[in-house]
Design a protein around this nucleic acid. Structure first.
Lengths: 222, 222
DNA sequence: AAATAAATTTAGTCAAGACTAAATTTAAAG
DNA sequence: CTTTAAATTTAGTCTTGACTAAATTTATTT
């Protein structure tokens, strides 16, 4: 018999947030499989969260759930913790991108607001975590994302690299040798509609990049 | 009605460890008041821990508890986490001695062995935490304490300050201005049996210290 | 529109770990 | 050696958050 470990309310809220970022409501089933819990358990928890003193979710039978403002605040708080922790573990303890997630997952629930402030300040209040995800602000707003995949740019458009989204460290190293790192400025000089290849000029080099690369590099148009 | 928050097994073990450091067994009542739990709850938990697959405590009705070797290992693991965390929070995030305890208390239960190794290495494997408490070794042994209160030295004996044990930051500042800081070397030049005052020579200065001070400064005889 | 499939909820069970009140054991005092 | 007090344990209750199985609702097909 599998030991059934208990899921925190914070985890419920965080996962509802993620499932509802697209504007839709989260289904009982989706939440259940995301949290490795049976659907019936989710129903029970949703009923509880919906009737909490300040309600944390909006819940109607068979209609899925969304977060209330209070629920969203709580979710963003955990997400802020998580992403600040990831950034900080990478910066100060040399964690790699793949190792850092599990550790942050555990720490995010227990750190104090004071701890949060200290690491945020120590890093100069970063905007993104090491995976490139936006970090909710101290007043619990999710910042607007002003970046777009490089693959969406066309000839004559230029941009500044914001972050690189990949879990493949080999690929990451390749990006670095090409100069494709945050802050770098580039200009698109050509576009091939057939295979979606882009020709870009970065520094004094001109290179051709496939969609497998340009879809992982996020830029801010300039 | 007070919300009754649950105490982790690790906390039970850690507190049993502390209560049994003197060699005696821990009483149900002592544990209960230390953990802010009712005695009956402690009895129940002790019965559980005693009959766990590898037993964690030695427990006989009405006789108090002690830790088994497995239990002691688990306790030292948490204590190591706690003390490494305190040292690390102070060193890297500027926590003060009084702020650091509560934060470490929460983190100690969730950090990975990997995290433990990383911070230990980052600090050069410290022997003591910021309060001067010994940090259990990586293989879960409590190091021998080779330090003694300065108040136990007598004329012509000399020593090196190991740590200062006080929660009073004013007093701590006073110590610092006197040069009474870790690593400092001193020699006892006089002793007054009536009031237990010591005259010591530190650097080129000679000063007289009362028991309120000499009992808080721990030295290694040299 | 009826039938079937899929998703969700209800109802009731279980384990953990706290609690209270009552019973029991040990310790202390006369 | 009794008696009383203090400490501890037993017994049974409560809450939480999982689970399963059955019932119900919604969605899809023919």
């Amino acid at each position: 018999m599998e030991q059934t470990l208990t899921i925190s309310i914070q985890d419920y809220l965080k996962n509802i947030y993620e499932l509802t970022e697209n504007g839709e409501s989260a289904s009982t089933n989706a939440l259940a499989s995301k949290l490795n819990v049976k659907p019936a358990s989710v129903t029970g928890m949703m009923q509880k969260l919906a009737s909490a003193k300040p309600a944390l979710v909006e819940y109607q039978k068979h209609q899925g759930v969304t977060l209330t403002d209070d629920g969203k605040k709580a979710a963003l708080e955990v997400i802020r913790h998580h992403r600040l922790l990831e950034a900080w573990l990478v910066q100060t303890l040399g964690y790699s991108w793949d190792e850092v997630h599990a550790e942050a997952e555990k720490l995010e629930h227990v750190i104090s607001e004071d701890f949060e402030r200290r690491i945020a300040a120590a890093m100069g209040h970063p905007l993104r975590d090491p995976h490139g995800e936006l970090i909710p602000t101290a007043d619990l707003q999710m910042p607007l994302d002003d970046s777009t995949p490089l693959s969406s740019l066309r000839a004559s458009q230029s941009g500044i690299i914001q972050y690189v989204k990949t879990a493949d460290s080999e690929l990451l190293k390749h990006f670095e040798t090409l100069g494709l790192i945050p802050e770098a400025e580039l200009e698109v000089t050509g576009y091939s509609p057939f295979d979606h290849n882009l020709t870009i000029k970065i520094g004094r080099k001109s290179i051709v990049l496939g969609l497998n690369i340009t879809s992982k590099i996020y830029v801010k148009e300039s």
